[in-house]
């Protein structure tokens, strides 16, 4: 399946791009992260501490155990600082 992956704030800076399209068969978010981390070193640096990250699936907050089936957009970012 084809998934759009978005990165925000320091996750975007560490990975070096705001979005990319990924072809994957990953079953869960954690599987997708593991797959990305087999690529260039910058991915492992960005995903080193998952407790410092949040994930949204199709623009809804979710978690790393969540299944990816049917998901079109995955976003990774640090805890939000609005207001």
């Amino acid at each position: 399946m084809t998934i759009t992956v978005l990165y925000f704030a320091w996750v975007r800076e560490r990975i070096g791009l705001p979005r990319e399209t990924v072809e994957t068969e990953a079953a869960t978010v954690a599987d997708l992260v593991a797959e990305l981390c087999t690529g260039e070193e910058r991915y492992a640096a960005a995903f080193a501490d998952l407790s410092a990250l949040r994930v949204a699936l199709d623009q809804e907050l979710s978690d790393f155990d969540a299944p990816l089936e049917g998901v079109r957009e995955v976003a990774f970012f640090p805890p939000m600082t609005g207001g």
């Binding site: 925000f8 939000m80 609005g82």
Partner: peptide, 26 residues
């Protein structure tokens, strides 16, 4: 509304001083 939009709305603040930019930690 304030409590929720501080930590549940996807905004990220970055502060710039003479030392450069620093992401505000939650």
């Amino acid at each position: 509304l304030m409590d929720y939009l501080k930590s549940r709305a996807p905004f990220w603040k970055q502060e710039f001083t003479s030392d450069g930019g620093k992401w505000v930690a939650a």
